Amino acid sequence: MSPITSEDRDALRRQLEVLKQRTLEELRRRTDPADTIPERVSYEHEVHNNAEDAEEERSEDLRFAEIDIDRQRLRDIEEALRRMAAASYGVCIDCGEDIPRNRLMAYPTALRCSACQTASENMRHG
């Protein structure tokens, strides 16, 4: 278990900034009014196709779910950047031990070491 070096920290900061920009671009794209499904104008003579309506609703639900995921990812990235600025980045929030370098390189927004993350997930699901 090797702690992160200052070079690792710089690389991780750059990686987080790139992830932040990509996530912001995704949010802009997903929330662009021109990119939304147009509201169906109902006319008395229009024949409604339930399958088309269901597909439009499913598409809209999926878009909102993706927006929620992007917003959470953005919060996680910003929190990781705040921890970096406060010099608490790379320290498990549960046990206080250093999060292994390999874990941070693979998952730069990690809050916990692998053991504490597993324990946290087991408590939530079990």
Rank of each mutant, 00 (worst) to 15 (best):
L111M: 02
R14H: 08
D8S: 02
N50Q: 06
A115Q: 10
I37D: 05
R103D: 00
E79P: 00
E56M: 13
L111Y: 00
E66K: 15
I77V: 01
D35W: 09
G126D: 11
A65E: 15
I67W: 14
S6C: 02
E44I: 12
E26T: 11
N49C: 00
R14N: 10
G96K: 05
I99S: 03
G96S: 04
D76Q: 03
R9Y: 04
T109L: 01
D61G: 14
E79G: 01
E17W: 04
N102L: 08
D61M: 13
S6L: 06
K20E: 09
A86S: 08
A110C: 00
E57K: 09
R40H: 10
R58M: 10
L19C: 00
Y43K: 13
T5I: 02
A119E: 13
N49E: 05
T31P: 10
R30W: 15
R28T: 13
V41M: 05
A119L: 08
E26P: 01
T5C: 03
I99L: 03
V18N: 05
N122L: 14
Q21H: 07
M1T: 08
E121D: 14
E57G: 12
R30V: 12
N102T: 11
T109R: 02
I69D: 07
Q21W: 07
E55F: 12
A34Y: 09
A11T: 08
L74V: 08
N49P: 07
L62N: 04
R30L: 15
E121R: 01
S114V: 06
E79T: 07
T5P: 00
E78D: 00
T36D: 13
G90T: 03
A80Q: 02
R9F: 07
P38Y: 10
I37E: 07
I69Y: 15
R29V: 04
T23W: 10
N122C: 02
L19P: 00
S120K: 14
I99T: 02
A80C: 03
A87R: 14
R58I: 07
L16D: 08
D53M: 12
L62F: 12
S59P: 15
E55G: 09
P33T: 14
I99R: 10
V91F: 01
H48C: 07
Q15R: 12
R71I: 10
E55Y: 13
L16S: 03
P3H: 01
A34R: 15
D98C: 01
N122H: 11
S120T: 15
Y107F: 02
N50M: 01
V18W: 03
E56H: 14
I77A: 02
D10K: 14
R101T: 00
G96V: 02
C92N: 06
P108C: 04
N102R: 13
A54D: 12
V18G: 07
D70M: 13
E25Q: 05
G96R: 05
H45V: 03
L62C: 02
A11P: 10
G96P: 01
S2V: 03
T23I: 03
L111V: 04
M123S: 12
E97L: 05
Q21M: 07
C116R: 09
I77G: 04
A54T: 10
C116D: 13
S88Y: 04
L74I: 09
E97T: 07
T5N: 05
C92Q: 03
M105Q: 12
R13S: 08
